[in-house]
Design a protein around this nucleic acid. Sequence first.
DNA 1: CGATAATTGTTAACCTAGTAAACGATCTAA
DNA 2: TTAGATCGTTTACTAGGTTAACAATTATCG
Lengths: 156, 156
Amino acid sequence: MTRTQRKARADAMDVSEMALETLVGYNLKRAYVVLQNDYRAVMGDHGLSPRVFSALTFVVEMPNLTQSDLARRLGIERSGLVAIVDELEARGYLNRVAVPQDRRIQALAPTEAGVQAYEAALALINDHEDRMLHMLNAEEREQLVHLLKKIREIGE
Amino acid sequence: MTRTQRKARADAMDVSEMALETLVGYNLKRAYVVLQNDYRAVMGDHGLSPRVFSALTFVVEMPNLTQSDLARRLGIERSGLVAIVDELEARGYLNRVAVPQDRRIQALAPTEAGVQAYEAALALINDHEDRMLHMLNAEEREQLVHLLKKIREIGE
DNA sequence: CGATAATTGTTAACCTAGTAAACGATCTAA
DNA sequence: TTAGATCGTTTACTAGGTTAACAATTATCG
C-alpha cells in the first residue's frame, strides 16, 4: 500500500507524522520566527534590529574593519550593508574614518556611545534568550549552538 | 578591569569569543540562510518555495482544511496565505471547493497533480537535507530537530 | 426573533531584509 | 602604463511577510 493510497482511505494525518515536521529547514525557520518575535518585543520599536546589532558587535569588538570586511563576516552583500552602517552612523554609534593608505576604504570606528549601546543591547538580548530558552538546560543550549555552528560551517 | 577597558588596549578580538557567537538567535539565522541557499539551488527558479511547499504539505496530508486553518498551522496571517494558495491553484495543485454548510469558507482540496508534485518535491528536499547535513549523525540530527521543536512550542 | 458580534477570504498599502547590476574612484599587477 | 580588481554606493528589484479595512456570512444571546 502506497502512502497516497493509505491517505485516500484515512483522510487526515497526525501533524507529528508529517514529513514536514522532521525537516531541519522547516523547524529552523519556525524556531527563528518564535525567537525573533520576542526579540522585537524586547528591543522595542526604536531598538536595534538583529542585523544592526550584529553589525555593531563586530564594529565594537573588532574596530576599524572596512565595510567589505564586515559584509563578508555578516554573510551579506556590500550593497546591503550600506543602510546598516548608515543607521549606526545616524545613531552616533560609529564613524566612517578615512584611511590615508587606501582612499577607497573607510574604517568603521565605534564611538563611546556605540560601545555603551552595544553593552546595553547585549544585556537585554541575553535576558531575552535566557527567558525564551528556560526549557533548555545549559548542556542542551550548548549542544544546540554547536549543531547550528556545524551547519553554518558548510557555507564557508 | 571592564570589558571596554580591556578592549582599549588589545584592539581586535577573536571571533569565537564574541558574545554574538554564543547567541542562539544569531546562529539560528545564519544556519537557516545556509540551508535556504542550497534549498533554492536544488529546487530551481520555478520550483516550490519553502512556504509554498509547506502549505502544499498540509493540503495533501490534511485535505479540506480551510485557509484560516492553514494559516494558523503555518503561523502566518490569513491575508498572507492568499498569494500562496493562489500560486498552488495556478499550478493546478489544489482547488478551492465551496462548502455548502458554511458559505464563507472554501475547503482546500489537493489535485492528483498536487499530490505528485508534493511527493516529488519532498524527495528533492530530503536529498538536499541529507547532503547538507551529512556532518551530523542520525542522533545529532534528531537532537537538533527536538531542540528546535522545543523552541517552537513557546510560540504556542 | 432580531440585533450584535465574530469569522472568512480578500485587497491594498506598507515594511523588512535582502539581492544583482552598474558606477566612479582608487589601488594592484603585468 | 594599461588592464584588472576592489571599495563604497545607488538604483531597481524580489521574497516574505504585516496591518487595516471590507463585504459576505454565520454565531451568539438578550
